[in-house]
Design a protein around this nucleic acid. Structure first.
Lengths: 139, 139
DNA sequence: GTGATATCATTGGTGATACCAACATACTAA
DNA sequence: TTAGTATGTTGGTATCACCAATGATATCAC
């Protein structure tokens, strides 16, 4: 990368370059499974938390409610999730994984693991620990 | 942030969270100067490299040619850059900063420095050095 | 109980970032 | 000279992040 000095010297630039590489690799792998980042986030949260409302899904994934709506509807069309109205609060729609959704999540989890391996290949496990400690303090 | 376990445990997630925070801060500060990331990158490259072609601008900034076209035209409309045809190669358009562009870059450079300070406030200079070393190896 | 307030899902946006393909023009190399 | 290449432009697409308005529903204050 022959980036110009002003950019290459910025710490935020280097941070965003590393994240961009990780993101490119993630996108590439997810694309191979016909998924995107929003979809993985939603499936992952449902895998962890079971049947939950869309608001809770938003909190668990960091997605805006409107993006949750869109993503959940796409996943529903592909039969990866099902929805029902919450009997105790008609405003809420409760979302959960279908069997196909669970299988998809298993596949995506594996793929995501490959992404981790590829992204962090250049550094050792001990270095990853150091890195994550610093990143966490930045977040 | 109460992200779900599957996401919070991903190293790539933590990397992208830290980068996202940096990006939010950058956006906020640039917005205050009526600029965006593409515009700063182009101005910064022109500040470093002087009069250069759009292809070279793309290489120096990591931007696609089409995005360079768009960004340079916007900067030209605001009189921050000027363009002329390369007398030695009529395909090329040579771009350079105007006086107003130079002043804008000075302002943006200062703002970008504030962004660095705010983003990396939570860790020490020595830790920044460690972090950048690891990030560079990941890129 | 009722009126004000808040919450939830939805709809319909915006802007930034990162790409891609096709094209006309202009140059280069065989 | 001709085939191929480089450059800038145009006109897209996808992803990600975010915002405002709205109707339906719940909850709170009284």
């Amino acid at each position: 990368m022959a980036y110009t000095r002003r950019l290459a010297n910025l710490a935020t630039w280097q941070l965003s370059e590393a994240a961009a590489r990780a993101h490119r690799i993630l996108r590439e792998y997810l694309d191979g499974e016909n998924a995107n980042g929003y979809e993985y986030r939603v499936l992952a949260a449902l895998g962890d938390l079971g049947q939950i409302s869309q608001v809770d899904l938003g909190r668990a994934t960091g997605l805006d409610r409107s993006d949750i709506t869109h993503t959940v509807r796409k996943l529903e069309a592909r039969r990866f999730v099902s929805r029902e109205s919450d009997p105790r609060d008609a405003r809420r729609s409760l979302v959960e994984l279908t069997e196909a959704g669970r299988r998809m999540l298993v596949r995506l989890d594996k793929v995501i693991q490959l992404v981790q391996d590829e992204v962090f290949m250049p550094i050792t496990d001990a270095e990853i620990t150091v890195l994550l400690g610093l990143l966490r303090r930045l977040s």
